[in-house]
Design a protein around this nucleic acid. Sequence first.
DNA 1: CTGAAAGCGCTTACAG
DNA 2: CTGAAAGCGCTTACAG
Lengths: 344, 344
Amino acid sequence: MVTLKDIAERAGVSVSLVSGVINDSPYVRMTEATKQKVLDIIEESGYVPNHSARSLKFSRTDVLAVIIPHISDPIFEGLLAGVYAGAEKYGYVVMLGDARELVSGSKLLERIMGQGQVDGTLIRHSATLSNEVIGQLAKRRVPVVLMDVSDTKDLPWVGLDERNGTARAARHLLSLGHQRIGFLGGEREYPGTQRRIEGVRGELGKAGLHLTDKDIWFSHQEPAAGYATMRRLLESGDVPTGLVVNNVTTATGVLAAVADAGLRVPDDLSLVAYLDYPAAALVRPAITTVDQPLFDLGYQSVELFERLRRGEHCDSYTIKSPAPRLIKRSTTRKVGPTLVRRRA
Amino acid sequence: MVTLKDIAERAGVSVSLVSGVINDSPYVRMTEATKQKVLDIIEESGYVPNHSARSLKFSRTDVLAVIIPHISDPIFEGLLAGVYAGAEKYGYVVMLGDARELVSGSKLLERIMGQGQVDGTLIRHSATLSNEVIGQLAKRRVPVVLMDVSDTKDLPWVGLDERNGTARAARHLLSLGHQRIGFLGGEREYPGTQRRIEGVRGELGKAGLHLTDKDIWFSHQEPAAGYATMRRLLESGDVPTGLVVNNVTTATGVLAAVADAGLRVPDDLSLVAYLDYPAAALVRPAITTVDQPLFDLGYQSVELFERLRRGEHCDSYTIKSPAPRLIKRSTTRKVGPTLVRRRA
DNA sequence: CTGAAAGCGCTTACAG
DNA sequence: CTGAAAGCGCTTACAG
């Protein structure tokens, strides 16, 4: 391996001189000629500074750990794109981890908790992640930011306007004449779920309607869980005409369950999914969704992290703009004759 | 930050002694009592060795860079699970990168190419990744392994039995009476695509049939690309009765295009997708797929990497077992009357 | 304008 | 059985 020392020898100068040219250090001065000579030798030898040595010197690793509930869930694509963009901007490389891997004794946790391995951690909170782990992280020397609204006072966070998001979904259903609207999806323990339910409840309240407990169906996020939950809902025999599903990933399973029951969307049931991703437009029926600025969430989380890291004081906050946007596709329609007949 | 020196002082011993107990070094001996005392102090002080310092000393980082064409594509879920499992086994943490980020000048490339930043790189080859980048990587000091069959002699690889995989798909269609079978998906420049086409072609050949060039439709992998390509196929007015789609992700878009054209799957067109993921069972119609051992591919790639890293000689190879497995769901059926009528 | 030295936190032969 | 010293590759005040 070629080192600074090698370059210095080949150039006939001292190592500090070489280090100086690499870092454009104001402390070390040199003639333009020697600088160029050193640069040429670096170029031809393919020298790259040893990163571990710099890490040790500066106690910074330039790696940012990013934990999300489920790596391969396409719902996180936008979020990750934002995180990667922010990371690139500030010179970080991201170490992506699955929350399910973040358990006691795992290498991942060890690394994140250890010293000198990562400069900080961004976490998309989820029910998968125990409060114990969160608590441990909060005690770390390096910043941890939650990419999610949170009830924790210990950790800084940036979140989406969840209430407004599901309220937007409910409003759409209401405008289509739906009077009985249910909520399906989300884990009960997850703080975001409560806010999403409140969003629907609040909107129904304005219309003089109610979201009753029996119309709330908690569910894990995977399509298979959505399928199973929707099946139970259907078997209960007491089905709302409109459904706010949290979230698109879950919705694909929900749609399959409806189809298997011989019901049609949107003729027999209208459905709007909270959160959007491109594939929602490419299933049939295409899913009506509420789009939220997930890219911004990722990007701004890195920004917040960076400020924290520089010792600036930062408050947690909710991204209010752009506001949640309804994307009308094909899973919602006016409460119509088919439905009425069926329910009669 | 608490260091080795701090621990040594608190325990009243030398730093080498402390280092010795941490690493169970055979060079440094101590009484059971002092060992326990040191261990207690480490415990109570929450000391964790500085990773950068160890990296510098051992010139190893314990991080493995893993590059895939598209981070959020669920098709890679199994592959990643295998990689993560292997990484955990050998004590690596993974730095996941998107091939689309791996461009000249990016932090990601810089890190992967640099020294002392990663111990090696696993790459899922793709058309996205230029040969130039691959070439640069091949020159690196640290091992690079391709998680894919490849034509490169420069880089070690482990791959799937692509030919046999698509042959299995074609065989299924043939057994259902399909006589004209097309291939849709994959990028022309990607070596795997050629093998997949050969798989279909070979199987048709055995049945005395042909895969003509006009029944081969290249496409990018995203659903939207599958949609656009299928649309063009449909507009050509000359549609096969059976289609092998490469791969499931693309297939979701293909199915939407078929639905939008007012055609039904499998009544008007049978479709089998190459490669499987759980969500394929949770769309309607559920997609008939050919499952391949993607987890094994990821896991074994780490194994190969590890052996390489230890200086052992390793040949590239194709995973033949378990053999590709057909998962019959709802996108294929016998060439039937509907189809005949339509084509008449 | 340039070089020698100390130090980041660790490990490991070596001397006592 | 235990400690002092050198060294991994780098950067940065400091002395010349």
